[in-house]
């Protein structure tokens, strides 16, 4: 008989007093749902868990010009877990990289917004991702390019937790440590659920902070839905001069829509009904 799967991975998550989502966080979630309504599908919970991570990066941390996406001096943000792109699209539209109306075209035939983000199509998308485990290698290359070209640009790579099962992530982590890339920061969206189920069951990552430290990173852990916590942590970057940084962001898959939180079955939804969309909007407002 197969062993029972962990029903709730929360028992191994630090206890945070996460403040209630403010209106900005609700608005961004509303836009994610709008895109999902337009496309009739999407990885919504994976986007909601990283919503505050991207919000804080784009509101408070990154240096960028949305009217000049290829501005050489900009900071780079790579969404390595490309399936979280609904969240990225909501933030990029909010920042004016493209009109918000574009969100409603998500996954339609001629849309620029696919089910995974593409660099050549979407202004503000730094790398085409979707195949997991690619973003950190690209980020290492960008961080080295900034060093070679004597630019102050910083590089931020947002990964999933399931994503870092990939060996390529650890190849690149080792390389970032070797080169002491303190202009590189990894943010792990640690929502504890991958496609099949709990990360503790499918492929346990613990002790996660120790792993990153062993690979040469300076580590911080935050409540990934607490805007102030994220802001304070990211203000301290780099945590240690001469070392890359990693922020382990403890998050909730589906955060802000109560009936899909922690639900592995919601990882990817297609053929979503009007009633389901309506319930998602209502849940966002009630959050």
């Amino acid at each position: 008989m197969a062993p029972a799967l962990t029903e709730t991975p929360l028992d191994q998550t630090p206890v945070y007093q996460t403040p209630a989502l403010d209106q900005r966080s609700k608005d961004l979630r509303h836009d994610c749902v709008a895109a999902m309504e337009g496309g009739g599908r999407g990885h919504l919970p994976s986007a909601l868990s990283l919503m505050e991570i991207l919000r804080v990066l784009y509101d408070d941390v990154l240096s960028f010009r949305s009217d000049q996406p290829d501005w050489l001096e900009r900071d780079r943000c790579i969404l390595s877990k490309g399936h979280g792109c609904l969240g990225l699209y909501a933030v990029l539209a909010d920042k004016g990289y493209f009109p918000k109306a574009e969100l409603l075209t998500y996954c339609k035939r001629d849309s620029i917004l696919g089910g995974h983000p593409e660099r050549d199509k979407v202004p503000g998308v730094e790398a085409s991702t979707g195949a997991l485990g690619h973003g950190l290698g690209i980020g290492v290359g960008m961080a080295l390019a900034a060093r070679i070209q004597k630019r102050d640009s910083r590089v931020f790579v947002v990964t999933g937790d399931g994503e870092i099962n990939e060996g390529s992530v650890w190849e690149s982590a080792m390389c970032a440590g070797k080169h002491g890339l303190d202009n590189l920061t990894v943010l792990v969206d640690y929502n504890k659920l991958q496609s099949y189920g709990s990360t503790y069951d499918v492929q346990d990552l613990e002790p996660l902070a120790d792993k990153w430290q062993a690979f040469g990173f300076a580590v911080d852990s935050v409540d990934g839905h607490d805007v102030a916590d994220l802001q304070q942590s990211l203000k301290r970057l780099p945590y240690t001069a001469g070392k890359p940084s990693v922020v382990i962001c403890h998050t909730v898959k589906g955060k802000g829509i109560a009936h899909i939180e922690h639900q592995a079955g919601w990882h990817h939804k297609s053929k979503i009904s009007a009633e389901e969309i309506d319930a998602l909007y209502k849940a966002v407002e009630a959050a």
């Binding site: 790398a127 290698g137 960008m142 390019a145 060093r147 190849e171 070797k178």
Partner: peptide, 26 residues
């Protein structure tokens, strides 16, 4: 030396690294 990289035995990483560099003009 700033443009010479002898990395470990990690082909997935060096291809990604080369891609990131090329995206920024190298």
């Amino acid at each position: 030396p700033d443009r010479f990289f002898m990395e470990g035995i990690n082909e997935a990483n060096i291809i990604g690294m080369a891609a990131g560099m090329a995206m920024d003009g190298l």
